[in-house]
Computed example of a mutant assay.
Amino acid sequence: MFKAILLQRAQDKSTLAQLQDLDDSQLPDRAVTVQVEYSTLNFKDALAITGRGAVVRQWPLVPGIDLAGVVHASSDPLWQPGQRVVVTGWELGERHWGGLGQRARVEADWLLALPPGLSTRDAMALGTAGFTAALCVMALRKHGLQAGDEVLVTGSAGGVGSIAIALLASLGYRVVASTGRPQESDYLRDLGAAEVIDRQPLGEPGKPLQAERWAGVVDTVGSHTLANACAQTRFHGAVAACGLAQGGDFPSTVMPFILRGVTLYGINSVFTPNDQRALAWALLAQHITPARLQSLTTEIGLSEAIAYAPRLLAGEVRGRTVVDVSR
């Protein structure tokens, strides 16, 4: 038996989230069973637990879009009991049972071995948010951005934004953090932001072309914020878009793209090929220290996750929320 959060759909189509004791026989029929040590609570997980978004595709479901732990059993020769692994994406916590439980069963090709020196807790302090941030930074670096270039990070106090700031600063970029939480300015500067700006002007309707400023942008917000960020990006600059906290719309024109040659990269962390996953995790392991992770991480127990989810949706949580599934 193991404990897990189980989401079920009530007759009125509302979501019922409960911490339950489950049996291994209830796990999906897949190749590798993982003894989960840590998971995380992400925006998508909070939507699933509260039933406020159309996240869950299969009922009943154990939520949790990522996990880290130790291989318990495997029918695939690639993985042996005792190996330390991490899983993000692959529709975990949406269509497939996820990480907010003490045991999970996944496909062999969903797994990655943890980079040397990275604990399972550190892996989840990074988690899907860190992996997504790394993919954004990789896109900007591949585009040609150099150390010293000015990069805007929107939604900067959230999980992706926080790790993007720390990673970009470690690589030598001048990072400008946009936030609606001025009380987090010291936190953002400690992560490596050279400047903290109010998000409000970026979040309002703006002109299709504005004064050039950013060599690159990591946007976690979407909507008017993304449109304004593109309008302010310098000639031949790049914008990596990975979120829609403000909205899924894009009220812009083609002008930044055809008059300034701005490139907009869409970042999808769910179905990223494993060779790119390995590069992203190696980048994170090299540039984000355990001490830095500690400064941006809050830890809760599995028993606390259901009650904690509405706080995340309300914007009351900064950085990363790691879930210790043993308590």
Rank of each mutant, 00 (worst) to 15 (best):
M1Q: 15
I5L: 09
L6P: 10
D12P: 04
S14L: 10
A17L: 10
Q20C: 13
D21N: 14
L22Y: 05
L22A: 05
D23R: 11
D24V: 15
A31D: 13
Q35G: 04
V36G: 00
E37V: 00
S39L: 06
T40L: 02
N42H: 09
F43I: 00
F43L: 05
I49T: 02
I49M: 00
T50R: 07
R52D: 04
V56L: 00
R57K: 11
Q58T: 04
I65G: 03
D66A: 03
A68P: 05
G69M: 13
H72F: 13
D76I: 13
L78K: 13
Q83N: 15
R84C: 05
V87R: 09
W90S: 07
E94H: 07
R103K: 12
A104I: 03
V106S: 00
V106A: 05
L111R: 02
A113L: 13
L118T: 12
G130L: 11
L135A: 15
L135T: 10
M138I: 14
R141M: 11
L145F: 03
G155Y: 02
A157M: 08
G161I: 04
A164G: 01
L167T: 08
G172R: 11
A177F: 08
G180A: 15
Q183N: 13
Q183E: 13
L188D: 03
L191S: 01
A193F: 07
A194W: 14
E195R: 15
Q200I: 15
P201S: 02
P201W: 03
G203F: 01
L209W: 11
Q210H: 08
E212P: 09
W214I: 02
G216I: 00
H224R: 07
L226S: 09
A227F: 03
C242M: 15
G243R: 10
G247S: 04
G247H: 06
F250N: 04
P251C: 01
P251T: 00
P251Y: 02
S252F: 03
T253Q: 03
M255P: 05
V262F: 08
T263V: 14
L264T: 09
Y265A: 04
S269F: 04
V270N: 11
V270M: 12
F271P: 12
T272S: 10
P273A: 15
P273S: 12
Q276A: 12
Q276G: 12
A282K: 08
L283G: 05
H287S: 05
I288C: 08
I288K: 05
R292I: 12
S295F: 10
S295Q: 14
S295T: 15
E299V: 06
I300A: 01
S303K: 11
A309H: 12
A309M: 09
P310Q: 12
L312Y: 10
A314I: 09
G319F: 10
